[in-house]
Design a protein around this nucleic acid. Structure first.
Lengths: 220, 220
DNA sequence: TGGCAAATGAGTCGAACGGACTATTCAGGC
DNA sequence: GCCTGAATAGTCCGTTCGACTCATTTGCCA
């Protein structure tokens, strides 16, 4: 209400002094208030608890405690603190871990100070920033994981057999399946025998598991 | 080898003539060769087949055939054609569909022509570009989907029961499990009875399915 | 039109299954 | 020292399962 613009309180966590000093200088020029510097993850967690900065610029690779774990601890102790992770390379596994740790941004270190400043301001307003390189990397991962979709309607088992399988998966016994489908137990058993052959299973448990693996039935 | 720099052949697909003309002008200024314009998805697919452009700038929302489906068809017919999707808003569902369709970039329409030009050049060299807004949106989605991690070692079933479950899941019958674990069939049945209670199952099939759902056993 | 796959039904038989009840041994915690 | 839970083992009994063989009806397609 009073309009007095309070500058954003920033904390740096990186094990390279030179990089910290460079960051401190450029972030100060961008109008941020650098209130503290930590040289490793453990120090960062402690310092964050004392200083409660608005935003932490945290390197991923640090001694004692890596940036991901440090971020997790900081967020656990004080969820209001925003953490922006800095990383050397667009490593897919690290990125996944970083995402889970609850950071508000993921930047590769070769980005400009303007980009960092933007990311800090976005983080304060609750937004998330991702370096293009990291975004693309994540995208490829998602694309890699996703394609397991096989729209080919191979239909290994017949419609009826599929119904039987789903009911079995839902917890029905042979008599119950027969009742549900208004057919005799014999017929159900015949369908099952056919299913066992087709799915290379020797009992209903294996058949259902195989069907789940093949996406023929759902687990719910 | 001859050094003659061939410009990138571009195709536009958007149902708004004005936007197409604006794009054509600015892309031409950026040195691209705009070889065609389509006003809807179906036209885009046909035209792509005839012109085989290097890159298509494809709007997501179009009459006849939406951009996602059109992209899928174009990539199916000619995987070498790169498609960059343009979208109005960072809609999560559309983004997911777009990712699956195999495009090489996803830009929100308020980005600059320089950004579009960069994305086109990246697409030609096989890279993927994502608008920051879309990246953040996707990130939130991943974060939402991921947390279901429960590292709590609740150990619903005992070690031994888990072994039995895994063997059952691997296709063993009660006698076989007994043999494998060097215990009597009776004991296996005791374990199973205990498992049924704990997992609220009434037979081995349900028990294994529940165990799979709970991540107690693996499906290979 | 002839043949083939799907869906239905049936019989027998031995093995496997699941429930109910009981029991012993052993380790860890109160 | 007592109690609990895990792991072991047993009996009895009725049900369910899966293998094997066979038969009928439908619908489709070559």
């Amino acid at each position: 209400m009073m309009g007095e613009r309070v500058s954003i309180r920033l904390m740096l966590a990186d094990d390279h002094r030179m990089l910290r000093e460079g960051l401190r200088r450029s972030m100060t020029e961008h109008g941020f208030d650098v209130v503290g510097e930590a040289a490793d993850g453990a120090e960062a967690v402690d310092m964050a608890g004392e200083l409660t900065p608005d935003v932490i610029l945290m390197d991923v690779t640090m001694p004692e405690l890596d940036g991901v774990e440090a971020t997790r601890l900081v967020k656990a102790a004080n969820p209001a603190i925003r953490v922006i992770m800095l990383t050397m390379h667009a490593d897919q596994e690290v990125l996944a871990a970083a995402i889970r740790s609850g950071a508000s941004g993921y930047l590769v270190k070769d980005c400009s100070t303007e980009e960092i400043a933007d990311a800090i301001r976005s983080a304060v307003s609750g937004e998330t920033t991702l370096s293009p390189a990291l975004a693309a990397s994540m995208l490829n991962e998602v694309r890699k994981l996703d394609p397991p979709e096989q729209p080919e309607e191979d239909r290994v088992v017949t419609k009826r057999e599929e119904e039987v399988l789903q009911l079995i998966a839902d917890g029905c016994s042979t008599p119950e399946v027969a009742e549900r489908l208004y057919i005799s137990q014999k017929t159900v058993k015949n369908h099952l025998a056919s299913i066992y052959q087709k799915l290379d299973a020797r009992d209903r448990t294996q058949a259902v598991l195989q069907a789940v693996r093949m996406g023929i039935v759902s687990l719910d």
